[in-house]
Amino acid sequence: MTVLLLAGTQDAAVLADALLVAQVTAVASLARPMPRAMPLALPTRIGGFGDADGFATYLRAAGITKVLDATHPFATRMTARSLAVCRTLGLPYLCLARVPWVAGPGDDWRHVATEAEAATLIPPGSTVFLGTEHLTLDRFATLAGRRVICRVMDPPTAPFPFDGGEFLIGRPPFSVAQERDLFAALGVGWMVVRNAGGEASRTKLTAARDLGIPVVMIRRPPQPDAPVTDDMAAAVAWAAGR
């Protein structure tokens, strides 16, 4: 039995450690290299599979018997493709998905369906903290005309894709106090995030609430009808066949 762990998130890194401890034979897959990231605890292949046929070919050649999907909640095309291929090949599939964030007392969240809609809520000239990965920055081009700050872990290799943007280098985790001090120093007036869920990255939302910063929350896209859990221990037990 060999489990394929579709990785690329912090949850996947934790899962890799847990699978190793549980003595589950597994291999991890990353769509792209993760600069400066700690190596995963499992043997790791790097690079995409191409299309569905390429993914199926890999699963057969590698002798994969189960697929555990711990990719980003917004990577819905990858999840849908993985699920479809597994169903075609008759392979068990499970998705580990974080519980979405839910606004609490004092939170000022404005929900939108797409990145482009953020600009309809944020006035020109505002200072915006963009709490999303930089690889999809081009989707936020409608925010041009505002000061847009995107935090990245590593120095960027390309310029900001639209006028008014700037990169900020920082490596998580960040405490609420650190986020609060940062946002106050930068004069952040708005925040834009995708509803990825997870406690570790919620500190920026708590800091925004403390400072009265409105948050434009991008809803998760419709999720594929897949077997899913938000329980790490249950995912490990499933992979181990228990």
Rank of each mutant, 00 (worst) to 15 (best):
Gly212Met: 11
Met153Trp: 14
Ile213Met: 08
Asp53Ile: 00
Thr79Asn: 09
Gln10Glu: 15
Thr79Pro: 00
Arg194His: 01
Ala103Thr: 06
Ala22Cys: 07
Leu83Gln: 14
Thr203Cys: 09
Gly189Trp: 05
Leu6Cys: 12
Leu96Glu: 00
Ala226Gly: 00
Val102Phe: 09
Trp238Val: 00
Phe162Asp: 04
Ala13Ile: 08
Asp231Met: 07
Asp107Tyr: 07
Pro33Thr: 03
Val27Cys: 14
Thr206Arg: 14
Pro222Tyr: 05
Val21His: 12
Leu205Asn: 10
Leu20Tyr: 11
Ser126Ala: 13
Ile169Thr: 06
Leu59Pro: 03
Val148Pro: 07
Gly212Arg: 11
Thr2Pro: 11
Leu137Arg: 06
Arg151His: 04
Leu182Ala: 12
Leu137Ala: 04
Cys150Pro: 04
Asp108Phe: 12
Leu83Ile: 10
Gln178Asn: 05
Ala233Phe: 12
Thr79Gln: 09
Asp69Asn: 08
Arg87Lys: 14
Arg151Pro: 00
Arg60Ala: 12
Ala184Gln: 10
Val3Pro: 02
Trp101His: 05
Leu5Ser: 01
Asp53Leu: 06
Ala113Trp: 07
Thr25Pro: 12
Ala144Ile: 03
Ala184Tyr: 02
Asn195Lys: 09
Ala233Thr: 14
Ala18Gly: 04
Leu96Pro: 04
Ala18Lys: 10
Ala113His: 13
Pro39His: 05
Asp138Val: 13
Arg171Ala: 14
Asp225Met: 11
Phe162Ser: 08
Thr88Lys: 15
Gly90Val: 06
Ala70Gln: 05
Ser29Gly: 01
Ala18Asp: 10
Ala235Pro: 06
Arg242Val: 13
Pro155Ile: 09
Glu199Ile: 08
Ala97Glu: 15
Leu205Phe: 06
Ser175Pro: 07
Ala234Ser: 13
Thr79Ser: 13
His134Ala: 15
Pro100Tyr: 10
Glu115Thr: 14
Arg219Glu: 15
Arg32Trp: 08
Pro224Phe: 04
Gly50Leu: 03
Trp109Glu: 05
Val85Asn: 10
Ala184Arg: 12
Ser126Lys: 03
Val193Ile: 11
Ala158Ile: 08
His111Ile: 10
Val27Asn: 13
Gly50Cys: 06
Ala7Thr: 01
Thr76Cys: 09
Asp53Glu: 09
Leu42Asp: 04
Val67Tyr: 13
Val102Ser: 11
Trp101Lys: 05
Pro33Ile: 09
Gly241Phe: 02
Ala233Glu: 13
Ala207Thr: 08
Leu135Thr: 15
Phe162Gln: 09
Ala103Asp: 09
Cys95Gln: 15
Arg32Phe: 09
Met217Trp: 08
Val216Leu: 11
Met217Gly: 03
Arg194Asn: 06
Ile169Arg: 11
Leu130Pro: 05
Asp51Trp: 03
Val85Thr: 07
Leu89Gln: 14
Leu5Phe: 01
Val216Gln: 10
Arg87Pro: 09
Arg60Glu: 12
Thr65Asn: 13
Leu68Val: 02
Leu96Cys: 04
Gly48Thr: 08
Ala119Met: 11
Leu42Val: 11
Ala61Thr: 00
